[in-house]
Design a protein around this nucleic acid. Structure first.
Lengths: 202, 202
DNA sequence: AAGCGTCTGGGACAACTGACCAACTTCGGG
DNA sequence: CCCGAAGTTGGTCAGTTGTCCCAGACGCTT
């Protein structure tokens, strides 16, 4: 076996955990299973991580970062706010269907972190990142389309997160992509109702 | 220990599992932990249930039924569709905050069932029940307010489920009741945009 | 070439898990 | 009153889990 640096091993183990959880669920993510997936001896696990939780924390943060990055430049400006929101949500949805495991891991992680004291705060940080990204999206959208929101952006951001989260979970259960896209479209229209063309004084 | 019928014991064990999962999460729901919570010897578990999965299936169905029942007569007709939807969602939200464990168990169960082949179909049935209830709510709402929907009820039902699900999860993470209620209100208004006063021919 | 920190490997541990058994007690109908 | 069915019990099984240890192999510096 090729010798690998500890930091590289960490990355390998995190990626292996990602694959295992995505394919077989959270309960299957034992240290042995993860090491087998990574092609590493069990001892390498505790050489690289002080505990299993440490791996989980790193996995969460890496996966959230992947989501946020994927969405970073993701605001598409079309004719109207509604069309722009639709396009932006479509683009997001493409990344979901391209890598469903990301969402499987994320939702599972949230659930797990909710009850594990050692992961307290991880779920909170995860959702803060969601809200921040959503707020950014809404603000660029408003700027790009020349509108302003009739509700505080914080509230709208929460609504956006609620929608994406809810649609993802429903889709994970029934894998009905058409229904998911239809729901996203309808939500895009509905949320656009909270935009008014910006008064151009000053 | 008082002698109890097997069916009564089953109920006791299901309730104990409900309490354990609600308080300590899904991973803590071992047969021993559940039996301790129910005040029953471990062997009673496998006298009443063939396996742990059987308990879980019964727990899921009982909890979903509780949710559906709580929502059964829950359509409140006020002046407009928006107000009615708001009132109905408020009533739903009251049941959530009155018994958060119900939602903790439900979301955890969904996550668990997603990867456990033995529970395949359980999550699907769970969401079918959600959608059915949502559709019923929307139809009574339309009838009560004298409006009709501009989108297929099936689609709107999915949107309703998405919203409640998403709001619940966000709330489970940050426990911000005000934000949750504000989001529900805004969604009520947004979804009311898909209603038009019914043309009264025939 | 020698030395040293870094990484590997197999094995071991104690704790815990779901499942099961065989013996015991209680109950209700004949 | 008795007997079989229903319910209870503690103990036990094999398997799995997270964690740890230690001897050895590697590769970089001197």
């Amino acid at each position: 076996m090729a010798r690998v640096s500890a930091s590289e091993r960490r990355r390998q183990l995190v990626e292996a955990a990602f694959r295992v959880i995505g394919a077989e669920g959270f309960a299957a993510a034992t240290t042995r299973r993860i090491c087998a997936e990574a092609g590493a001896p069990v001892a390498a696990f505790h050489y690289c991580f002080a505990s299993k939780e440490e791996l989980l924390v790193e996995l969460t943060e890496a996966t959230v970062a992947a989501l946020v990055d994927a969405q970073a430049g993701g605001v598409l400006v079309r004719g109207s706010v509604a069309e722009s929101l639709r396009a932006t949500l479509h683009e997001y949805w493409a990344t979901v269907e391209a890598d469903p495991n990301r969402e499987v891991v994320l939702t599972g992680l949230t659930q797990y972190a909710l009850h594990e004291p050692s992961l307290a705060g991880v779920a909170a940080r995860q959702y803060e990142a969601y809200h921040r990204t959503a707020r950014l999206t809404l603000e660029s959208l408003a700027a790009g389309c020349g509108v302003s929101w009739t509700l505080p952006v914080t509230e709208l951001a929460r609504m956006l997160v609620v929608v994406t989260d809810g649609v993802v979970i429903a889709w994970l259960v029934d894998r009905d992509g058409d229904a998911a896209r239809a729901a996203l479209d309808a939500f895009a229209d509905a949320l656009s109702g909270f935009a008014v063309s910006a008064v151009s004084h000053r």
